[in-house]
Structures are given as structure tokens and as C-alpha cells.
Write a protein that binds this DNA or RNA. Structure first.
Length: 410
RNA sequence: GGGGAGAUACCCAAGUGGCCAAAGGGGGCAGACUGUAAAUCUGUUGUCGCUGACUUCGAUGGUUCGAAUCCAUCUCUCCCCA
């Protein structure tokens, strides 16, 4: 067992938000090899950075010799977790959920070591879907006080806006999951984002009531910016771990452009850089903090997309913003030589390059002086791009300050 | 089951027969400033064959020269009573 307690590591890095029994959990993690679980409901076809934070915790725990169970919520996704939402989740079909679950499984396998039984992946649809309603009520339902549930934080906002019975049941399902894993695998601890606190203690209490045994829970800080907004969201949606949905370059840029005040938090939570170094890097002020941001961006991208992609993203960023590195790495599109022969309208090219979602917006961007072709501002919306604009078969198209696209002729 | 309120663009929210592609705010985008940051200020924010045309105000059908606005039916949400 590691000499340094993983509890202290998690605490020092700022993960821990709430713990059921602080001292006991600390002792437990110091003295025993603990089996614990974190659940992931497959509500989308890719994980996002919020999930990544959970995976970092798992990773820290695994490094310390504990055994993670990744619980894919194929069953709970059929119901929908109301925690932390103001609106009702829309019902998902079973096919969607199964598809998403497959995507999750693939992605998670990259982050956690499942070799030699060092970790486990299970899907709660295996036991939830075949539950018998009346039996479930008699065995599990009796232990839950509606009065208490109604006072739980996770239902507060929904009590004002509306909460359907199906979502109200979510807590019971998640609590049952914990019980199931406790029985099957002696899983004694559940971890999760802080919005999961109510659901986690639901399980802890259920185990105490049914099994007369002590189980533990711990929640982590949610990835929020220093202004309290959810991190990992951009104009175009979430920051996904799937490179098809968020390219490694975009991913890199997201962290590269993080707010100064969030640098320390991100370095601590999303990289394995030692805390001494984290503190040193984030103590930089003014322009120098950019050094820390570059390291953050590189490290996180490396963890998620691998070293090669991280280097490519870094070189691309250097080429665009620091006039070094190499432009080859800049993400781009290819156009056929025949398309260029007769010329292609700039606005069409902007859309094709994905720099603007529609031609109207492309026109607007041009009119507002936000479009550059090879670093030269173009303000004519009728401008036609032709072979003359290319050098060595490529040109650089830019929209706004930092949205680039390298266009190559093939 | 009875009664009431409501559904408007990415979100919140005004508009209750033509002056409405639809006020205002948030968010987004662009410009200035900068450190590829933040804050601030300015502009912009349905689409397209763009000085014009087309589609949009829960859905469908109707009244009208003309509907987000009136009528009918339907779907969904919330509140009160049972």
C-alpha cells in the first residue's frame, strides 16, 4: 500500500466536497484495499469533461491500490436523474441508451486499467430491468421516507418546477445499485459529483438498514469556473472526450484559454502534476500565467487524446499564435482542385470550413471585418477564392481572433 | 374527475388583427483594448439566390384582403379542488 494516503491526495488536490464519515474513511483508505464505485448514466454518446474528473478520481484511487467499479447506468438512464436539473429529462429509448452505453464503455476503457481484475465494469441494466415492482417496493421501498426525500437537496428545485413520479424514483434505483454492488462485490464506498450527495447517502442508509453494515460515500467538487458557472461548456455545447465531437485541437484550446483564476483548480483536478509544481505554476501572474495554461492544455489533452495528438495540438497553436511550430498541424479541410478552378465564394468556403454555421453568418462575419484570408482582412462579401490565393496548395482561413481553418487543395 | 393558468427565437420574457423576423434581458458571435485571459465599451444575433424573397411564435385545420394575435380540435406543462 502506498505510504501517502489517497484521501490526503484527493483532499490536497481539492476533489473532496462531502464525506459521510471523514475520519473513518481516511482510516479505511489507509489500511485497506477498498472496492468503490462511480456511476455513469449513458445520456449522451460520449463522455465529457465532467466525467473525466470522475475518472481522474478513479485513477488516483486505483494508483493507491483500491479497486474501482465503473457502473454504467444503462438501467438508471431509463428513468433519468432529476438531480441538479430544473427541467425534466426527456425520455430516451432503450436503443439510444444501449448505443450510448457502448460508447461509454469504449471510452472509459482508455482511462482505467481493467487488466487482471484491477477494476470492474458493470451495467445496472443487468439487475434493474428485471426487477419486479411489488417485490422492489416491499424490499427496498419500505426503507425510504417520502417526508425525508422531499427535503433532500436534489429535489428542491424540482419541487418548484414539477417532478414526475418516475424521476422521484431515481434515488431508490441508485440506492439499490449500491446495495447490489455491496452484496456482490463487497463494494463499500460510492463516489460521485457533489450533485449526487443525496443519492449516495440514500444508498449508504439502505445498506445500513438492510444489511446492518456500514458503507461510505464521498462527493467531489463539480467542475465550475471561479464565477460558479459550469465548466466544460462552450457556445457549441459540451467539451466532449470523443475526438469526433470535440477535436483534440479544440480541446487543447479550451484549456489554453481558461480563466486565470481557474488554472490552479484545473491543474490540480485534471492532471497528475505534483501539487508543489501546480502551486508554482499557478502562482504566476499576468502574461506569465500563460506558461501554466500551456502546460495545463498539453497535459489534459495528453491524458485524454494521447501524447501524439497533444503535441499536434500544441504545434498548431504555436504556429497560429506564436509564429513557430508548424501550420501542418492546424486542423483543416480539403477541397477538390476542380472546385477551385472556377473559384469558390468566400462565404461558401467559410461554411464548408465549419467556421460559420450558415451563409448568413458568414456574410455577417465578413461585413463586420472578422474574416481573414492568409492574414489579410477581407470585407467584400462577394469575394471569390481561387487558385491564386493558395500557396503550396494551402491557405489559411480565419474567422474572428482565433478560429482558424487550413484549407488544402487535393 | 372538476376548475384555472400557460406553451413565443439558444434561454428568460414582451407582444392579444396590419407599423412583427417579432420589444427587453441573458447568452453567443464580431470589432476596440489585451496576455490566445478577465473586465469594459461598440456592433451584431431566423434562413436564402440579401436594397428583395422565403420559413418561424406547441400541432393541425378554419375565419379574414391580412393572424404570434380571432375560432375549432389536438398535444404537452403548471396550479387549485376531489
Amino acid at each position: 500500500m502506498n505510504s501517502v494516503n489517497v484521501y490526503d491526495i484527493l483532499q490536497e488536490r481539492g476533489f473532496i466536497e462531502q464525506v459521510t464519515h471523514e475520519e473513518e474513511v481516511r482510516e479505511l483508505l489507509r489500511n485497506e484495499k477498498v472496492t468503490f464505485y462511480i456511476g455513469f448514466d449513458p445520456t449522451a454518446d460520449s463522455l465529457h469533461v465532467g466525467h473525466f474528473l470522475q475518472l481522474m478520481v478513479m485513477s488516483h484511487m486505483q494508483r493507491a491500490g483500491h479497486k474501482p467499479i465503473v457502473l454504467i447506468g444503462g438501467g438508471t438512464a431509463m428513468v433519468g436523474d432529476p438531480s441538479g436539473r430544473t427541467d425534466m429529462r426527456k425520455m430516451m429509448t432503450r436503443e439510444q441508451i444501449e448505443h450510448n452505453a457502448e460508447c461509454f464503455k469504449k471510452q472509459i476503457s482508455k482511462f482505467i486499467d481493467f487488466s487482471n481484475g484491477r477494476a470492474l465494469m458493470v451495467d445496472n441494466s443487468d439487475w434493474l430491468l428485471k426487477l419486479n415492482y411489488v417485490e422492489f417496493l416491499r424490499e427496498i421501498g419500505v426503507h425510504f421516507s417520502v417526508n425525508r426525500m422531499l427535503t433532500a437537496e436534489c429535489f428542491k428545485s424540482r419541487l418548484e418546477r414539477g417532478l414526475s413520479f418516475i424521476e422521484f424514483n431515481y434515488m431508490l434505483m441508485q440506492s439499490y445499485d449500491f446495495l447490489e454492488l455491496f452484496r456482490k462485490y463487497n463494494c463499500r464506498m460510492q463516489m460521485g459529483g457533489n450533485d449526487q450527495w443525496s443519492n449516495i447517502i440514500g444508498g449508504v442508509e439502505l445498506i445500513r438498514r438492510v444489511e446492518g453494515a456500514e458503507a461510505y460515500g464521498m462527493t467531489f467538487t463539480l467542475l465550475t469556473t471561479s464565477e460558479g458557472k459550469k465548466m466544460g461548456k462552450t457556445e457549441s455545447g459540451a467539451i466532449w472526450l470523443d475526438p469526433e465531437k470535440t477535436s483534440p485541437y479544440e480541446f487543447y484550446q479550451y484549456w489554453r484559454n481558461i480563466h486565470d483564476n481557474d488554472v490552479e483548480k484545473c491543474l490540480a483536478l485534471l492532471t497528475f502534476i505534483p501539487m508543489d509544481e501546480v502551486r508554482r505554476l499557478s502562482s504566476f501572474r499576468d502574461a506569465r500565467i500563460n506558461e501554466a495554461k500551456k502546460i495545463l492544455a498539453y497535459e489534459v489533452t495528453k491524458l485524454v487524446h494521447g501524447e501524439e495528438e497533444a503535441l499536434k495540438a500544441q504545434r498548431a497553436a504555436e504556429a497560429l499564435f506564436e509564429n513557430k511550430g508548424d501550420a501542418e498541424s492546424v486542423p483543416g479541410i480539403e477541397v477538390g482542385a476542380d472546385e477551385i478552378k472556377d473559384g469558390i465564394k468566400l462565404v461558401d468556403l467559410l461554411v464548408k470550413a465549419g467556421l460559420t454555421p450558415s451563409k448568413s453568418e458568414a456574410r455577417r462575419a465578413v461585413q463586420q471585418g472578422g474574416v481573414y484570408l492568409n492574414d489579410e482582412k477581407i470585407s467584400d462579401i462577394e469575394y471569390v477564392v481561387s487558385a491564386g490565393n493558395f500557396s503550396e496548395g494551402a491557405l489559411m482561413l480565419r474567422r474572428g481572433k482565433k478560429n482558424y481553418c487550413r484549407v488544402r487543395v487535393v
